[in-house]
């Protein structure tokens, strides 16, 4: 990986697709810590194998395959506690993502606008939870609510955001 143009190309592709690869991994493992660990692992594998990547081919598809293999191995080791511990479940989610790549990208693009539409109170909760990385329990202490109430509020906000990005992409598709 010493030749500069290839390094530059890798950096460009990873910057473009890294977030989608992270989302793909998170979908397969349903756990943020595991997803971040695997994301690092996939990032490294892609980088050391980048010589095998054919310029002009679909980098994201290649990254997804590498990630799927990594997740498969990971699941074997932790079968007892993963959600998608069967090949059927993994395949269903993988297929759903591949079939819906365009809509998922559009939903991602709509997310910022949907966050802007939240009430200040909801926005504050989301900021604390995600931008500041505070655990729900700690958020509960900060805002003087019970942990259960915070979990419920976050769930409600997640539903609101998903409905919003779904609506936005449907609207975009019609216009």
């Amino acid at each position: 990986m010493s030749d500069s143009p290839r390094t530059e190309e890798y950096v460009r592709l990873w910057t473009t697709h890294g977030q989608q690869v992270y989302a793909y991994i998170l979908s397969l493992v349903a756990n943020r810590a595991d997803a971040e660990e695997l994301f690092q692992d996939v990032s490294m594998t892609l980088w050391v194998k980048f010589d095998q990547f054919i310029p002009g081919s679909d980098f994201r598809a290649w990254a997804y395959r590498v990630a799927l293999n990594k997740v498969g191995s990971f699941q074997q080791l932790r079968r007892h506690r993963t959600l998608l511990c069967t090949s059927e479940a993994l395949e269903m989610v993988d297929q759903a993502i591949l079939a819906g790549v365009g809509r998922l990208d559009a939903q991602h693009d709509a997310l910022a606008d949907c966050l802007d539409k939240l009430t200040p109170r909801d926005r504050d909760l989301i900021d604390r939870r995600y931008r500041q990385g505070t655990s729900p329990k700690a958020v509960a202490e900060q805002v003087g609510r019970s942990a259960t109430a915070v979990y419920k509020a976050l769930s409600r906000i997640h539903n609101t955001l998903l409905d919003c990005v779904q609506r936005a992409t449907v609207t975009e598709g019609r216009s």
Partner: peptide, 21 residues
């Protein structure tokens, strides 16, 4: 498939929220 799709959308939403952090 609908459940799998719904699940994938949620996870992508969570990933989008986490990404900035």
């Amino acid at each position: 498939r609908e459940a799998a799709w719904l699940y994938a959308q949620y996870m992508h939403l969570f990933a989008g929220l986490h990404w900035d952090k």
